[in-house]
Design a protein around this nucleic acid. Sequence first.
DNA 1: TCCACTCACACTTTTGAATAGG
DNA 2: ACCTATTCAAAAGTGTGAGTGG
Length: 465
Amino acid sequence: MQSIRDLKANFSGPPPSAMPSSDAYLQGSIRMTLEDPELWRTFHGIGTEMIITKPGRRMFPHCKVNLSGLIPCAKYILLVDMVPEDGFRYKWNKEKWEVAGKAEPQPPCRTYLHPDSPAPGSHWMKQSISFLKLKLTNNTLDQHGHIILHSMHRYHPRFHIVQADDLFSVRWSVFQTFTFPETSFTAVTAYQNTKITKLKIDHNPFAKGFRDEGTTKKRRANKNQNDPDKKAKLSEMNRDSGEDSPTGFCRSSFEVFEGDEAELRKRKERDEEIKDERYSPWSTERERNNTRNGSSPAAEPRDIYSAEQMVPALASYQPYRFQEYGKSPSPSSSVGSSASGSARASFESRVPDVAVPDQDASKPRPHGAAPPCAPQPLPAGSQDYPGLLNASTAPGSKPAVLGHHVYGPYGAEQPLGQWSGSAPAQYPPPHHLGADYATPAVHHGYPHGNVTEWSQYPLFSYSCW
DNA sequence: TCCACTCACACTTTTGAATAGG
DNA sequence: ACCTATTCAAAAGTGTGAGTGG
């Protein structure tokens, strides 16, 4: 498996006026590094699970990256979306994940926009960039702009860095995409693997109350003291935790984190052991994949975990709809197909809309933007939402700007592989935008019926502003 | 009966307003 | 009047376990 290099090409080209300066295309390589990769690898070694809930749940570990190679004075926008790992649904069976059938049709695809966006390269590079407030939900009708996922499906986050002065010019901008293999996870509504639960409890400060040495024991004891069955169950759990955690998962890793370097080294060594020796819940699936890909897990180079991606400057591309998208299966489009590894480098056909964190709802919006999340019923088959771009889009303005809010990634007539078959019409428009958008009419009247039209649509449509 | 899912709960950290002190 | 530090309460983020529904 490779770290991503989604090199997308624009074949239609923007109007010269909208083109970034030539410098943009000659910029140095952008480098993105995953923060705290050891923690991610620890989780990944066991089989990361992320809880998804109706109101939305944060990820843990949460996505945090470092960027370098940006032009300090140029503005960039940072986005994250979630890409299905493969075309399967899973179930937890006897301590491991098993394929339980074909994946369900893709839920409405959304992209999380980092709240600092847009910001100059110097801003992004001076500190690590946290996506702490990104939330995952299983509510396909979610109105908060959270990223919608299916439970018991596997995903990985995908980071986009877009050179753009503002959100209006995203379409015309250079952007690059990064993924980190160790960030893949299974979306669940309740933890399946108790080892993951323990890891989360040990590392997530909010779950401190469940750590064994803490009050949890007392609380559980109190709760269960009158119930012999529960007591037995609990003691069994405790016994398990002892057996399952030879590497000290039950200890408060926070203490280790904050301890001296020697302790940290020890912990890293433990983690390495874990990764090498621990039974992998993904073994069967990996074997399957490897059979397809013709490589064995053991032979897989260690840099599968590479947290660092290099994207050559010339690989920069512009987010135009590629006319052949429909023929270019993406990893996320492999529902029903199986290849996940080989497809990773192919063009992405998903066209997410952009979700904005709740906390930004009260912030002033540029260009007289409409308020966030104003529900706006859309024509059937359309999953796109009007964004602030609408308001400033004058008649006769460039199609890119118009395109920001008219593209419907889930339209039934889409020719894309991912949305073909039963997928497209499965999800009605979520209507999660506010009703007070000023220019709903812009949605209508845009043909979605063929790939030629497709090419006029932007990479991102904005779901919530 | 099984399993995925939801919800209320206790516990924690985070956030922001109010206040005090320099 | 301004800035900084401290305190406190409310809000938000956790996993748990019971209950529900298919």
